[in-house]
């Protein structure tokens, strides 16, 4: 209790944590259903993950190992500050290693490394309501969820195909959870949608500004909506990661100079580093030539 004397464990008071845990339990009991909760003011602005932070604060224990990623990266401002926050207010161990984390708070990605049973993935959610863009009335969207009136969701996909010739929604791609509730998977790229399906990890979603929590329990069906003649597809990349040569991972474009130079690298920094440690090299890796020389004779 020495380091954290000025705060209750994990910042929130126990009553608040109980309230949030009740919301989480309800969310787990009704997969995909948005449970309202009394979101608290947090020492960070809305949009910086106040929902995810409250969920993490309510489930974290002294023995947990926390990993925080922002768009896949462990080392961006948002990830670094949230990690520092919990280190300070809960005195927990932190890591960047996906496999050894017990709780992973994420903004906009699911790690490339497969999650295991016992792990919890906490999503930061800006707008939890998937129907919002076409139906602005909350009373109406609640009713639509209650009555399973999801035709509107397909109207959105129809518009995509009509305008772009294909479903052009690439992130926050709507899913149906356990055959019942349509859910916004938060602004993760649709590339990650298949990872949600029957995942052994528990997935929790917190939206601080919108005051909603929802959940996908382990081994739950999560199906991306689509049309028979325009089936759901994930993004594909026509080149591997420029640093670690990984294929079938989600890549970010990195601008190298002001003359149009750019490269595609793993959005999951932990995954990329691990691969490089294992000796994989992409064509733009600093020691790429070396790696090529080393690997070429073997092929």
């Amino acid at each position: 209790m020495t380091d954290i004397a000025t705060y209750n464990f994990a910042y929130l008071d126990e009553q608040t944590k109980r309230m949030i845990r009740r919301a989480i339990l309800k969310g787990i009991a009704i997969p995909g259903y948005q449970v309202p909760f009394a979101s608290r003011e947090m020492p960070m602005p809305y949009g910086w993950g106040t929902g995810g932070v409250q969920v993490t604060a309510s489930i974290i224990g002294p023995d947990d190992v926390l990993k925080v990623i922002d768009q896949g990266a462990d080392d961006t401002t948002n990830a670094v500050s949230i990690r520092a926050f919990f280190k300070k207010v809960a005195n927990v161990a932190v890591t960047t290693d996906t496999a050894s984390a017990t709780i992973i708070q994420t903004r906009h990605r699911i790690p490339e490394h497969p999650l295991n049973a016992g792990q919890i993935l906490v999503y930061q959610v800006p707008i939890p309501e998937p129907l919002r863009f076409l139906e602005p009335r909350e009373t109406e969207t609640r009713k639509m969820h209650a009555l399973e009136e999801y035709g509107l969701m397909h109207v959105k996909l129809y518009e995509d195909i009509a305008r772009h010739g294909r479903i052009a929604t690439t992130y926050a791609y709507p899913v149906k959870v356990e055959g019942r509730y349509v859910m916004d998977p938060s602004p993760t790229p649709k590339f990650d949608n298949p990872k949600m399906h029957r995942s052994p990890a528990l997935q929790l979603f917190g939206a601080g500004r919108e005051k909603r929590i929802y959940a996908v329990p382990p081994f739950t069906d999560v199906v991306s909506l689509d049309f028979e003649d325009h089936p759901f597809e994930v993004q594909t990349f026509d080149q591997p990661c420029a640093l670690c040569a990984a294929e079938n991972v989600y890549l970010d474009e990195v601008i190298l100079d002001d003359r149009g130079g750019h490269m595609f690298v793993c959005s999951d920094t932990d995954h990329c580093e691990k691969r490089r440690e294992e000796g994989h090299r992409g064509h733009l890796a600093p020691d790429a030539q070396l790696a090529l020389e080393r690997t070429e004779p073997a092929e």
Binding site: L134, G151, L152, V155, Y158, A162, E228
Partner: peptide, 27 residues
């Protein structure tokens, strides 16, 4: 009407609401 979605989607909405899932047929 839904003023912010296309005429085609306005007509197709009821079909999608009752479970039509074939874009080509809806169109």
């Amino acid at each position: 009407l839904r003023m912010t979605v296309s005429a085609g989607a306005n007509v197709g909405e009821r079909l999608m609401a009752v479970g039509d899932r074939h874009y080509g047929k809806i169109r």
